[in-house]
Nucleic acid binder design. Structure first.
Lengths: 232, 232
DNA sequence: TAGCAAAGGATTGTATACAACCTGTCAAGA
DNA sequence: TCTTGACAGGTTGTATACAATCCTTTGCTA
């Protein structure tokens, strides 16, 4: 009778430690807007909500702080960070460089199976049609697949960190008319370059793709900010 | 009698919280070799050493984990990470891209005062002569100054994270014969390009500088590994 | 002697209690 | 009325106790 009683144990949530569980839940809550920018995050509140003590909550919050998702003032607690336009521009400038680098490295180092996976994801975008939720999901997996194909763990970490920061902007650029179609074409161009093992073309294509994403993002943000001013 | 008794309080270490204090001390200990790669870090041990409880130690260790400086296995504790040659290559590939980007952005966005500071640091390298410790110090400040001059907080964060990872390689590339002189010339080239507001030249110069640093680094590493094999 | 199993020690994960600190409120004096 | 000061409430920072887990050692058996 070694491992019978399993309920009281440290895990209980899909093998994650409580700290990891809380981190995951908070990230998700920020993504779907349950915690919006500027909202205060009280440790005791989160602890009660998720049925854990404050200790793992602190651990999770500090990780979010390290990634810049929450802002922290000693003795005053944390609030969900807010991205002003300048920060969004800086974020996309960085993403443009890193995604370009990832595509370049992918063209150089990707395994054939990884390239096949990229091609299949782009193929699936066609099948998804106008289903925005599906397209967003596929888009995320597409970019993640490129990050992995680059085979550089520091690059991977930096890109994941940027992607997490984007969770603060809870909106999708796919709501801009024509953006899904454009993005799909850009994805195809990137994969083609990687398949041809052409690093320069891959980097250029990814960089152009991100420039398009930034334009769409600023458009969405501008419209949201505008409508918020009209009816707050 | 509002703030008389100050000793028992949370800070006591230059205004840092205990968690920040522990993080700083651990980073320093890794830098100067008191904790070497592969060494086990026991929470209770560190807590006793620094005279705090395990709670702030855990906080500091988790931050180090997030930056990849320590590896973590649940229930088994943390050990200081070890960089194999592949990781060093990946790290420098990333640094090359990011330092190039930083130099490019510095050429575009740096304030005149920031450029003056860069120039002064390069000037100080001449005065430092053969004093390796001073040269290393100036070199760190030079690179930090470029990061800041780029005016992109995500870039800054990513570069600082990479720099921290380099603490795991406790050796300086300045011990390679001729490297200090070469580095100085390369620094001059970078500053010149930034002063001329030439982004392409600045990026190219910084990238070339990092390529040189990588070659020096691999040389140092190879020699150390070799001598360790001879007399372990 | 070799192999295995159980027990004990060591170490981390979590919960909780208490101390330190900040902020807003309310009253008293100018 | 305005300013200033103290106090109360609430939130975070830290310490410590306890639970869960892993690893090593020791003793038994084949």
């Amino acid at each position: 009778m070694a491992r019978k009683a399993k309920k009281i144990t440290a895990k209980d949530h899909d093998g994650l430690s409580r700290g990891e569980f809380v981190h995951h839940e908070l990230l998700q809550a920020i993504r779907d807007g349950r915690y919006q920018s500027g909202a205060r995050v009280r440790e005791a509140e989160v602890a009660a909500w998720l049925g854990v003590s404050r200790t793992p909550v602190r651990e999770a919050v500090r990780r979010l702080q390290a990634d810049g998702l929450v802002e922290f003032t000693p003795w005053r607690g944390v609030i969900v960070a807010e991205l002003d336009q300048q920060q969004v521009i800086e974020l996309y400038a960085m993403r443009r460089v890193l995604e370009g680098t990832a595509a370049r490295h992918a063209a150089q180092h990707a395994a054939d199976s990884e390239i096949a996976e990229l091609a299949e994801l782009v193929e699936r975008e066609v099948k998804a049609g106008d289903d925005v939720a599906r397209l967003v999901e596929i888009n995320n997996r597409f970019h993640q697949a490129i990050y992995l194909a680059a085979h550089n763990r520091y690059l991977l970490k930096a890109l994941n960190s940027l992607t997490d920061s984007l969770a603060l902007l809870r909106s999708t650029t796919y709501s801009v008319p024509g953006r899904p179609k454009t993005a799909h074409v850009e994805h195809e161009t990137i994969v083609d370059a990687i398949r041809r093992r052409d690093p320069d073309a891959a980097e250029a294509a990814a960089s152009a793709h991100l420039a398009g994403a930034e334009r769409a993002r600023l458009k969405v943000l501008f419209e949201i900010r505008q409508s918020e001013e009209e009816a707050p």
